[in-house]
């Protein structure tokens, strides 16, 4: 990964805060968006990025977080639809070069991959790892 990226992370839960802490420590510029203020408590004391409290499906909130200047947007909220919408808006409306969305539901993931949204499905990833661990069928 290149250095000095400007990254916007949507959702400051376990995954969002993990990514924000790591990317900030690695020297990248980071903005985290979350609708709940208390979610920012997940950020480590060394986190040096910005926090934006608001609903990321509201265009004004994405503007406030300067998504238009982002090199990378990662959507990590618990809701697949929020992540998918934010990813598409970041790409189409703000022209962000690289956009990643977490999507839990594997069937939804397939549809959105066709739309050109880069997705990571924790269900499928964990499933693969479990299968590999037990060396069973399907572990290619």
């Amino acid at each position: 990964m290149a250095t000095d990226l400007f990254v916007v992370i949507v959702g400051c839960g376990r995954l969002g805060s993990y990514l924000a802490n790591r990317l900030s420590r690695a020297g990248h510029g980071v903005v985290v968006i979350d609708a709940e203020e208390h979610a920012f408590g997940n950020l480590s004391p060394e986190y040096s990025g910005f926090r934006v409290e608001g609903d990321a499906t509201e265009l004004a909130v994405l503007k406030q977080a300067k998504v238009n200047q982002a090199d990378l947007v990662i959507a990590t909220t618990r809701a697949d639809n929020i992540n998918l919408m934010v990813a598409q808006v970041a790409k189409t409306e703000f022209g962000v070069a690289r956009v990643l969305a977490r999507v839990f539901e594997p069937r939804r993931e397939a549809v959105y991959r066709c739309l050109g949204v880069e997705t990571i499905c924790p269900t499928a990833v964990a499933g693969e790892m479990f299968l590999k661990a037990v060396g069973g069928e399907g572990s290619a």
Partner: peptide, 16 residues
């Protein structure tokens, strides 16, 4: 009341 759900419903409906 959620724009993200309305978008997903319509995209799935028309594309899938």
């Amino acid at each position: 009341p959620n724009d993200q759900d309305n978008l997903a419903v319509c995209q799935l409906g028309s594309m899938e």
